[in-house]
Write a protein that binds this DNA or RNA. Sequence first.
DNA 1: ATTAGCACTCTCTAAGAGAGAGTGCTAACA
DNA 2: TGTTAGCACTCTCTCTTAGAGAGTGCTAAT
Lengths: 343, 343
Amino acid sequence: MLDERSRQILNAVIQSYINRPDPVGSRYVTKKYDFGVSPATIRNIMADLEEMGFLSQPHTSAGRVPTDRGYRFYVDSLLNDKKCSFDAQIAQDIVKRLEGIKNDINAFFAEVSATLSRMSNYMGIAQPPKTESATFKKLELIRYKEDSIVAVLLTNESIIRSRILRVAPPLTQEDLNRIAGYMNTEYSGLSVDEIRTILTNRIKTERVMWDNLLVRAIKIYEQLLAFTDNELFMEGLFDVMSMPEFSDISRIRDAYRAIKDKHMLLRIVEDLSKTEGVQVIIGAENPIEELNRFSIVASTYGACGKKMGVIALIGPTRMDYSKAISMVEMVSNCICETLNESE
Amino acid sequence: MLDERSRQILNAVIQSYINRPDPVGSRYVTKKYDFGVSPATIRNIMADLEEMGFLSQPHTSAGRVPTDRGYRFYVDSLLNDKKCSFDAQIAQDIVKRLEGIKNDINAFFAEVSATLSRMSNYMGIAQPPKTESATFKKLELIRYKEDSIVAVLLTNESIIRSRILRVAPPLTQEDLNRIAGYMNTEYSGLSVDEIRTILTNRIKTERVMWDNLLVRAIKIYEQLLAFTDNELFMEGLFDVMSMPEFSDISRIRDAYRAIKDKHMLLRIVEDLSKTEGVQVIIGAENPIEELNRFSIVASTYGACGKKMGVIALIGPTRMDYSKAISMVEMVSNCICETLNESE
DNA sequence: ATTAGCACTCTCTAAGAGAGAGTGCTAACA
DNA sequence: TGTTAGCACTCTCTCTTAGAGAGTGCTAAT
């Protein structure tokens, strides 16, 4: 439905516009790209492209601007074509930088989001792996004060979760040791979430054989998991906001609030985490209205084939998709590499 | 040097300007505040105040705007006069909200900064207590993988610090227990920092009596403290940035970077933490040039008379100092209360 | 000491003119 | 039939100008 030349012109317009957010005119296209035809011809084709919904005009006598549909076409052909691969050197640098802090899962993913942002000038987002999907390694329970204990949960994925929990009635350190011992011998190697299911089933079927302590164990375990430290690291919000298309500060207020709102982003990220590989959400494709002028390039990451979380870049719809996609892809690979090494 | 009426007029101008950042004219003052004199008189006095450096004019035929010196005068007399005390109800609400999360020191101070920001519409900053100044309660060491252990440090102040540490050569769980046991029996109740000093001294004087393990203990302890999770929570950056005086987005770029830069803020906060009580830094009083158009209202907080950290509000120089001061004061008290209860 | 009156200064806004960029259409051309 | 040159037209942007409005400083009168 779109001949080769039209596609090339569409690409030319989009790339121009990505470089600088000014409407692209026919004359400019002939000057900058060598199609061997006159501006008038370009104009005709651009009019066609507009009719098909790939381009639009801010006003009658302005150049053309890509529509979301235009970007979509562009991105799809980008995803199908060759991947513009990244400099291996850069990847090495990132791996090296991440290597140093892989033992601190939060610092690690904070650095991931910072790296994404720094390299792209868009907003970088990194969701650390959920404790729930990690592999239970060890539980340690320590008496803290009369009515409170400290529970420390270790997983194979270098995730440590430690919390002060309220327990009533009080438990002795011996009790705690027995509970922890039970958990550690029985459940080591299962996923944190599986254990939760098993525990709740167990209490139904076995009817308090282990008596009190099993119940207490479950309570503690639940309490420990109740804290959703479902963090999301983001960096570079302001970089995006200071791009020329957002120079009118009043208009971006809502967008800012939406982007800043971690919960809202989390919802999107959760959706994304269902699908593997790089995904691109362009402008109004996003269900969140406030984000209609932004695009998201996201990818899941994981180790050993297991999806563990999502990283993403958020930028204006006219973002450099080619760069963003390859960057997200690369960083995702770096994460996998680093995580796998630490196994 | 300043008669009563002049002071009142200065106050009037400043309060007007705080409400809305428009230069304040003589006519406006007579209308809004009832001094029983004509605009001409006000003009004379304002001219005097300008001469003394408390007010200035954006241009010859505009109203007056307070200078930093004007604000300083205003704030000082504010601090000397009655404290505008806060609604006890609000304080109760805050205490209640904080109560629920006092066991998670990070969530706690994240909430503090959010509360400060939400209530004032300025930027709220909260520095959680440093681990170093907390009281050592217990150290727990757990073997994690061949060459790494998990160290968990508990303090009386509900601070948990847990890290994966690399240890070489490997240590058995027994070794770890001995090290932890040693630390727990010897040092419980001292401050985390004191212990550090004692340990290093000890190794010098006692010359490796405890042999290897003491050295290992010190190494682990140092390693654990090496991570400066000297966090600073901030909330509401954008609220400040979207105030009318910053409507020109390009001009606030540097300021944004300065404010966002936690390290820079940390330096200021560190300075502030030396002095007790509420402190106000107005505009250019701040050594950081990028922050010359902002003011900071800060206060230390602590429990049992011990200074533990700093909270602050950052806003434009025309911020509502009265409100900001009493708010910071109140929140500081709420923190103290909550922390003391948990002892 | 205070005030009314007045000339003056500066900003802000609206309106208008002209330049510039880019389009769509038409008619000619290969 | 696809391409192109030419041209009138549209819309934005910028610059200028003029006038309104707000507020001042000064002077002379109270």
